[in-house]
C-alpha cells in the first residue's frame, strides 16, 4: 500500500475524492458533476479519477455505489466501502492514501463541482505551488437553481485563526498534505479549519482563486448545522494549538492575502 501511495504521488492528474455518509439521494448529482469535470480535464490532457469513500452508510448508498462502480470502473469511478464509521478526517486521510493522482479535489457528497472552472484551479495550484487552492462556493438550498450566498470567498487572513470561513471543498496538493501528516483524525468537526491553520503555520501557501469552484448546498439536519458542540470543542482546541497567546497577528504568514488567477497572476 505504501508503495502504491508513493507511486501515486508522482502522477500528475486529479483525483476527485467524495466522502459519503448516507447521501444516497444526493450522490448522483455529485458524481455527475465529477464526471463532467473529468471530461473537462481530459480535454486538457489531464488524467483523473473519482474516488468515493463510503463511511458505512445504511441508506442504500453502498448498493448504489456497487452498481455505479460496476458500470463506470473503466471510466475512473472507484469505491472504498468501509465497514465502520469514522470521522470525516479519517475519510480524507484514506483519500490521501488511495488516490491515484497528485492533486485531490475534495467534494462532499451533497455538493456539486462547476466543471468548467476546475482546470483553472488546477493551473493555479501548479503555478503557485500552493498546498491548497480554493474559490467561491455558491450557496444554494436543496433544489434551488440560484445561489443566495457565497462561501470561501476571501483570501487567508489573520482572522482565520479566530473562525473558519474556508470550506473543505477545494483542490489540494496531496504531496504537501502528506508531508504534513494529513488531517488530524482526533477532530470530530472542523477538521478542515485545523488543516488550513496547520498548512498556514507551516509556511505553506493556501491561495484564493477568484472563480466559482462549486455549489454548496445547505440541507436540513446537515452535519454543519447539527454539530454545534463538537464544533465549539474543535474551535477551542484549534485556538489552543495555533493561537494560544493571540500573537499570530504580529508574526509573518506566507499565505496571508494570497490571491491568484491563472490569467492575471497574483493580484
Amino acid at each position: 500500500m505504501v508503495a502504491q501511495m508513493w507511486t501515486g504521488l508522482a502522477q500528475e492528474g486529479v483525483t476527485i475524492a467524495i466522502p459519503n455518509w448516507n447521501h444516497e439521494l444526493l450522490l448522483p448529482r455529485a458524481i455527475d458533476s465529477a464526471f463532467q469535470t473529468l471530461i473537462r480535464l481530459r480535454d486538457e490532457d489531464v488524467p483523473g479519477e473519482i474516488l468515493i469513500i463510503d463511511e458505512a452508510s445504511r441508506d442504500g448508498s453502498p448498493l448504489l455505489l456497487r452498481q455505479l462502480e460496476a458500470l463506470y470502473y473503466r471510466e475512473g469511478l472507484r469505491v472504498l466501502l468501509l465497514a465502520d464509521t469514522g470521522t470525516l478526517a479519517d475519510s480524507r486521510n484514506l483519500a490521501l492514501v488511495h488516490a491515484r493522482y497528485r492533486y485531490i479535489a475534495f467534494l462532499d457528497a451533497d455538493n456539486e463541482l462547476i466543471p468548467e472552472n476546475v482546470p483553472s484551479f488546477l493551473r493555479a495550484l501548479q503555478e503557485t505551488e500552493a498546498a491548497m487552492v480554493y474559490g467561491n462556493l455558491l450557496v444554494r438550498t436543496p433544489t434551488s437553481r440560484c445561489a443566495m450566498n457565497l462561501l470561501s470567498n476571501e483570501s487567508v487572513q489573520f482572522k482565520l485563526f479566530q473562525r473558519n470561513y474556508i470550506d473543505a471543498f477545494s483542490l489540494v496538493d496531496r504531496c504537501q498534505l502528506f508531508d504534513l501528516g494529513g488531517y488530524e483524525s482526533g477532530y470530530r468537526a472542523l477538521e478542515d479549519h485545523e488543516m488550513w491553520l496547520h498548512l498556514a503555520v507551516n509556511g505553506r501557501k493556501v491561495v484564493f482563486v477568484p472563480l466559482a469552484f462549486g455549489y454548496y448546498y445547505v440541507l436540513p439536519s446537515s452535519m454543519a448545522t447539527t454539530s454545534g458542540n463538537k464544533a465549539m470543542e474543535a474551535e477551542s482546541r484549534s485556538q489552543r494549538i495555533y493561537n494560544q497567546l493571540q500573537a499570530r497577528d504580529h508574526l509573518p504568514l506566507n499565505t496571508n492575502l494570497l490571491r491568484f488567477h491563472p490569467a492575471l497572476g497574483y493580484f
Binding site: V2, L65, E69, R78, A83, G182
Partner: peptide
C-alpha cells in the same frame, strides 16, 4: 511515514479493493 495513514479499517469489497492489488 505517519501512523495516521496506516490505521487499518474493516472494509466491504468493491471493484477497487479487489482489482486494486
Amino acid at each position: 511515514m505517519y501512523p495516521v495513514f496506516h490505521a487499518p479499517r474493516p472494509r466491504l469489497p468493491s471493484v477497487l479493493s479487489v482489482f486494486g492489488p
